[in-house]
Write a protein that binds this DNA or RNA. Sequence first.
DNA 1: CATGTGACTCTTA
DNA 2: GTAAGAGCCACAT
Length: 109
Amino acid sequence: MQAQTLNFFDKVYEVAKQIPYGKVTSYGAIATYLGAAKSARMVGYAMNGSHDKDVPAHRVVNRKGLLTGKHHFEGTNLMQQLLESEGIKVVDNQIQNFDNVFWEPSKML
DNA sequence: CATGTGACTCTTA
DNA sequence: GTAAGAGCCACAT
């Protein structure tokens, strides 16, 4: 099977949906899993349409565990609230124990 | 058809 | 160790 460009967005959505509760992942992890390690930006771009999907974009953060995309949410602290609601510690838009809550798609497979 | 943009990541100074 | 820059791919205009 090969990941086609048209499936890229859909793939990102599916992977994001596979993120277990109380866990988070990075754009690069998803991009790499899709075979486009260098398209990490695209992953975030795809999240722009995640609002219409059931994709928990709040569980997707950057490589440093920083909530870079929180600005794209309805509120300014909504993303952090959701993460904390799942048991994830977030301070100053940065996830604590990021390595502990980090989840990668390949791990689920 | 070409240019610009972006919720990133890595490499180098 | 910290800071800055370039690279990258896919979508939108």
